[in-house]
């Protein structure tokens, strides 16, 4: 090979092309599932069910986007489910105490920022592995939430707040609009801004990033704060949807978020991931659950199917990566 080949397309597959192709495969899988369910059931392609599906997938999708930022830095955020439950309690409690709605929302999101900053502090300053620090907050946040509510739930009487999750805008559920509200800035951040590049660099080799002048600590703070803030945002949406604050809600959602992210092509070893991948991953999971309900499949089976799907999709992704060498 000589220097003249610089502009030819030969050689190892360019990364961007592959990532688009993988995105299209996932999109194809999603459409295939929708087609299949449309043929197998009468009720799938009803406006009601589609709205329902979009609502179901929306919250996991937002969590998965935040989670993806963390996974790209080669970390993990196990606390997101607990943060959702905890922040649902916070917003309910603030509203019950008579705090105006918009202040309650801002304060709740601020809690998300604080929790994320605490995670990053533990990782950067105390040298704790991400798995450990977020596992610790997973259990303690549920505990704090239960202490605040004394083990019960707090009802939300603010109707403007609770109506939001049931509302539609242009015929599309407002919860799904929230996915777009999160996804567009997330895309700009991850794929178009330098901070996105820094996330990948830190996940690939933090020492090399550091010696190239990247502020590694700040990048890690950014990733965990974004993840927890996404989770706090989902906490608001959940509280709006169920009309209560309850610290035990969203049990296991962290695993849903990680699964969506991984199905969407994110590598748990870091430095590989996108924004569109986890979104598709979340809606694939939501479709499977929705379809299983429509087909009257035992809900225990849904869990098994989800597990098998994770193995199959990630296995094919691995094959593709190896094939690209």
């Amino acid at each position: 090979m000589s220097a003249e080949t610089v502009d030819s397309g030969a050689g190892p597959a360019p990364r961007k092309g592959v990532s688009i192709l993988f995105g299209l495969t996932l999109l194809g899988l999603l459409l295939f599932l929708w087609l299949l369910l449309g043929l197998a059931t009468n009720s799938f392609w009803t406006p009601n069910n589609i709205s329902n599906l979009l609502r179901q997938g929306a919250m996991t999708a937002i969590l998965a986007v935040g989670q993806t930022f963390v996974i790209i830095t080669a970390g993990i955020d196990l606390s997101v489910g607990a943060v959702v439950g905890f922040t649902s309690v916070i917003v309910a409690w603030l509203l019950a105490a008579g705090v105006p709605l918009w202040i309650a929302i801002i304060l709740t999101l601020a809690f998300g920022v604080l929790i994320g900053a605490f995670h990053a502090f533990g990782i950067v300053r105390m040298g704790l592995p991400p798995f450990i620090i977020t596992l610790a907050t997973l259990t303690s946040l549920r505990g704090i939430g239960l202490l605040i509510t004394n083990g019960s739930t707090i009802s939300i009487t603010n109707e403007a707040f609770t109506n939001f999750s049931r509302a539609d805008f242009l015929g599309v559920p407002s919860l799904f609009w929230m996915v777009i509200v999160v996804a567009i800035p997330a895309y700009v951040f991850l794929h178009l801004s330098r901070f996105g590049r820094y996330l990948f660099a830190v996940g690939s080799n933090s020492e090399a990033a550091r010696l190239s002048g990247v502020n590694v600590h700040r990048t890690i703070y950014l990733a965990y704060i974004l993840s927890s803030t996404c989770a706090a945002f989902v906490g608001l949406l959940l509280a709006s949807r169920i009309g209560i604050g309850n610290a035990t809600q969203a049990e296991g959602w962290e695993l849903q978020a990680i699964a969506s992210s991984v199905i969407g092509g994110t590598s748990l070893f870091g430095a590989v991931g996108s924004v569109h991948g986890p979104l598709l991953g979340a809606f694939i999971l939501a479709t499977i659950n929705n379809g299983a309900n429509l087909l009257n499949v035992n809900s225990f089976w849904q869990r098994i199917i989800t597990g098998v799907l994770i193995i199959v999709i990630v296995y094919f992704d691995q094959l593709r990566r190896r094939g690209a060498r």
């Binding site: 660099a201 090399a208 990033a209 002048g213």
Partner: peptide
């Protein structure tokens, strides 16, 4: 260990 983000593209490494 210190010089490159090996699993990232050449372009990103150069521009880091």
């Amino acid at each position: 260990d210190q010089g490159l983000c090996l699993n990232l593209p050449i372009g990103l490494n150069i521009n880091l």
